[in-house]
Structure formats: C-alpha cells, structure tokens
C-alpha cells in the first residue's frame, strides 16, 4: 500500500520495516559518525530448524504503525541510556528464506563498551515488545506462529516495562 508508513527518523534514531533484502552497509552507514569510536552491528538470521525440526522458510508480519512506534520508543530509550551517537533498527517482513537476515541493528557510540551493551539491549527489547510475528513454515505441514515468550501468557505493557527494568 502506497500510504503505508515504513520508516521513522528522530534525533539519532532510525527505525524501518521493509519487504526487501536487508543491506548491512546501509544500516551501518545510517549510524556512521566522526564522533564515533565504535559501531556495533547485530544481524539476526533465519535458522534452518526449530528444535531439530527442519524449517523451510519464515514469514514475518507486523502491525506496521504500532511496531514502528514501539521500535522508536525502544531506540530513544537506549540512545539516552547508553549515550549513543546514533541507533538504527530495521526489520524485514514477508518471506525470509533460510540464512538471510530478518533484523539488523546498528549503534554508534564514542567508545566500544556502550556500543556493545546498547546493541544487545536493543535486540532483547525488540524481541520482547515489537509488534512483529514470525511463522515457521515446515515441509509438508502447517506453519506455526512462534512466540518469543513461548508458553507465557500475554502481558500488559506496563508489566512488560517493569520486567525490563529488573
């Protein structure tokens, strides 16, 4: 849909959703800065099995406007908490073949320690909160919607937030 919002930028934060192949250089270039002493990039890739069972491909869907809003909120919090120069988070949607990237997160900071930690927290917060869903497609049977908190009931955002603070 042409009127669909697929990215938001704000004060050192970039978040995006795309159906296209993710480009590692593009995401790193979004956070590149003369003030940076470190850029850390995380690439999440699609695995060929779930608990040993062969996975054919993965399908991602999203509630785009809410997912982007949550991604931006996560990035803004982490940007402030770790004193980052810049942070970028892009998630791929639709069919993602095995071995390709489904998410890229890049952060830049004056020094490496903050960049490492911020990158890790950004991914954990994303997996916990962002309104994107993964379906694993198996050979010869129905796909399965995965939950990052498998077995756990849904949680109110306020509770989820207090869990993150622990």
């Amino acid at each position: 849909m042409n009127n669909e919002i697929t990215e938001i930028k704000n004060a050192g934060c970039y978040v995006g959703l795309t159906h296209d192949l993710l480009n590692l250089n593009d995401v790193v270039n979004r956070v590149r800065s003369p003030q940076a002493g470190a850029i850390v990039m995380f690439a999440g890739t699609t695995r060929d099995n779930f608990g040993g069972k062969p996975v054919k491909e993965l399908q991602y869907s999203a509630y785009n406007p809410l997912a982007l809003r949550t991604m931006l909120s996560i990035c803004e919090d982490i940007h402030a908490k770790y004193g980052l120069i810049s942070i970028a988070m892009v998630h791929r949607l639709g069919t993602v073949p095995i071995g390709e990237e489904s998410i890229l997160i890049a952060v830049s900071a004056p020094h490496r320690q903050a960049a490492w930690r911020a990158g890790e927290q950004a991914l954990e917060d994303c997996k916990e909160r962002v309104e994107v869903w993964k379906k694993e497609e198996f050979e010869g049977e129905d796909g399965v919607w995965r939950a990052n908190r498998d077995g756990a009931a849904g949680q109110k955002v306020s509770e989820a937030q207090s869990t993150l603070d622990q």
């Binding site: 509630y63 809410l66 998410i103 997996k127 869903w133 993964k134």
Partner: peptide
C-alpha cells in the same frame, strides 16, 4: 481495535 498475540520479532 487490534488483537495483539504474543510477539515474535527478531
């Protein structure tokens, strides 16, 4: 209104 199942990004 949206029904939001447990999320699974990443």
């Amino acid at each position: 209104v949206a029904i939001i199942p447990p999320v699974s990004s990443g």
